[in-house]
């Protein structure tokens, strides 16, 4: 299936080119994945996603890739780029410093086709930790104000609220690789995000969910999740802070 294609007509002379190796796999009829190679031109600002879309436009429209916002906001375009989980729209070819750029689907996610993976497990675990404010009263009473927070209270969780559910952390996590029931760093960081929110009263029910034989205790401090997070969420720190509640260091 390997193939080399190149595009040279009508490009400016300042353009450089790289070999883009795309992992191709269709579980319906392929035994294993195979790389297809394309020669693509790029500018200083060209992202990996743009290069893939170039391939789709000019060489092979059947390459499967998921994307939407193109600005590191929707969390759709996570993939393994030159061996590391990254957002394709947030990774410039020039920053990779390599003549060959390899793109593969994220690890620890079932492949739908080529670079597109199934997100069901991530959405399920995210939902499991109750990702919303829990309280008995409601803000709907007409003469009341919204629940105000001090800047210090916001500081407690705001970094964790930046999560875009891209799944890169789950893709990098070594426990996720073998434990098919593990909650995963994404959901654990979100459990912390809500538990640490001064407006939330659902701490006990949330801690109960993650205090399971495949819950928070299956994190072994590898820290890979925080290395790959494109939004600076630092899920590993969220997990350790969450552990603090469970070991009685915080309340």
């Amino acid at each position: 299936m390997a193939q080399v294609s190149s595009m040279s007509d009508g490009q400016s002379s300042t353009m450089k080119s790289i070999t883009l190796k795309i992992s191709r796999f269709n579980p319906e009829h392929d035994e294993s994945s195979q790389f297809m190679e394309f020669n693509v031109n790029y500018e200083k600002w060209t992202t990996v996603l743009e290069a893939i879309l170039d391939v789709k436009k000019h060489f092979d429209h059947s390459v499967a890739v998921r994307y939407s916002c193109r600005q590191a906001t929707c969390g759709s375009c996570g993939m393994i780029i030159n061996g590391k989980p990254r957002l394709a729209c947030f990774t410039k070819i020039s920053e990779l410093d390599s003549n060959v750029v390899t793109v593969e689907p994220m690890n620890n996610f079932p492949v739908i086709r080529d670079l597109a993976v199934k997100f069901e497990r991530l959405f399920d675990t995210h939902q499991k930790i109750k990702p919303y404010l829990i309280r008995d009263d409601t803000e709907l009473e007409s003469d009341q104000k919204e629940f105000l927070q001090t800047p210090e209270e916001v500081e407690q969780y705001i970094q964790f609220a930046n999560c875009i559910k891209c799944g890169l952390c789950n893709s990098a996590c070594p426990t996720m690789a073998t434990d098919s029931s593990f909650v995963g760093p994404q959901a654990l960081a979100q459990a912390y995000r809500y538990v640490a929110d001064s407006r939330d009263k659902g701490k006990d029910s949330r801690l109960k969910v993650i205090d399971d034989s495949h819950g928070i205790w299956r994190c072994h401090f590898a820290g890979s999740c925080s290395q790959v997070c494109p939004k600076g969420v630092d899920p590993a720190m969220g997990i350790q802070l969450l552990r603090g509640y469970m070991l009685g260091f915080r309340d």
């Binding site: 098919s180 034989s213 205790w217 299956r218």
Partner: peptide, 14 residues
């Protein structure tokens, strides 16, 4: 126990 639980999953096995 921890190592084995992470290695393989399943009700009976666990």
């Amino acid at each position: 126990r921890v190592i084995l639980l992470e290695l393989k999953q399943g009700k009976m096995y666990e």
